[in-house]
Design a protein around this nucleic acid. Structure first.
Lengths: 210, 210
DNA sequence: AACAACATACCGACTGGTCGGTATCTTACA
DNA sequence: TGTAAGATACCGACCAGTCGGTATGTTGTT
């Protein structure tokens, strides 16, 4: 029935997400959001019963899309090869591609943003964030453990720590990328992680011609 | 002059740093800081002419101590060995030790906190943050480049990207550590970085007995 | 007397949130 | 088909409280 573009609710979410990542939650007033979206106060409170509920909605939305991205990427990698080690390397490669296509630095991670403005990080929000991170760790670590059975790594690895590295590198890479206003840093860091895993498992690396 | 403990100014800085890292800058009101420190409004504005000036002071203080920590660590490593590769590995080892001693998750990085609550990140603040990050990159990359002359790495590395990795891993490690409320994660991640560089340069790694 | 180091009372702008109302669309039933 | 009933989306004036900041003291030391 809606004829014109995204719904009011979606416009609020989109704008607020952007503003909160830039300014922080507390520093982003409703009036600012209202002005930027052209939505009135009444309309806002029709869709969200409080500012905190907006934060919660924003959060759920973010977690959902992040989970989806990881899931899709893993499945793509699994279709491309049956070798678990290659699946990990391809997953990292796909992320690298994704981040390499950015023309501006990645705006940042909502989880980190909330963590640095805590006390609005409720126990449920915290638990969901942990789950999201834990999935990445578990999925990657599991594949590497299987890979190690047929292809022993050069040194005994801490699989869980390596599983965490994708999260760590993405989080740290976003901050560094933002700081230097250089969109390429994030992809470069992912490439290092891939290189680490290749070295660990003795995979032949192509020396880039460039 | 001052007979009892830290000065009022120092108490404000210390408390505010802690609160801002936890709640964010905008969410930390002067009244809250005043209540927590027992300092009155008059006293506060005697020492800082505005809340923004407090932020600036906090920031300078943070950058200065961070620079000092890196500098001291690098010098310690340089005294312990003359081999540049070993200097890098020892530097990482010292950081690992430092973070491994934490009993609670590292409270976070003020630069990241400010980056996620931008618009209070002035051009000067931004420039100083970049410089701080750039020092780490430059110092580590330089040592690795020298090391590569006598000990060729297994694959052609992106030295600058590897130089950035310490920053990236620390930033990401802090977030992950805080999220899981696990102080050990940060040190584990530094260990992975060390392992990467060891593999890259073909350094013999001791398999931990544990 | 002069100045640093505080204390107290107060200010206006802005905050998140409420509330009474309207316009438009969907559904139910005669 | 017409119409009454109700839901949904939206409007904007208003409110009480909080915010950073100021003005004007008081105290203690040199």
């Amino acid at each position: 029935m809606a004829k014109e573009g995204p719904s009011t609710r979606e416009r609020i979410l989109e704008t607020a997400h952007d503003m909160i990542l830039r300014q922080g939650y507390a520093a982003t007033s409703l009036d600012q959001i209202l002005e930027r979206t052209g939505v009135t106060k009444g309309a806002f409170f029709h869709h969200f019963k409080s500012k905190d509920e907006l934060a919660r909605a924003l959060f759920e939305r973010y977690i959902a899309t992040e989970n989806q991205v990881l899931d899709m990427t893993l499945r793509r990698a699994e279709k491309l090869t049956s070798d678990p080690l290659q699946q990990v390397l391809i997953t990292l490669g796909l992320f690298e591609e994704l981040f390499d296509a950015l023309e501006a630095p990645h705006p940042g991670c909502l989880i980190a943003s909330f963590l640095y403005q805590n006390e609005l990080m409720t126990p449920e929000t915290l638990a969901k964030s942990r789950d999201a991170f834990a999935v990445w760790r578990r999925e990657l670590a599991a594949k590497l453990r299987i890979a190690a059975k047929t292809r022993p790594p050069r040194v005994a690895p801490d699989y869980d720590a390596i599983g965490d590295m994708l999260n760590v590198v993405v989080e740290g890479g976003m901050v560094t990328s933002k700081l230097f206003d250089d969109p390429k840093i994030l992809a470069q860091q992912i490439r290092q992680l891939r290189s680490y895993i290749e070295l660990l498992f003795g995979v032949e690396q192509r020396t880039p011609a460039q």
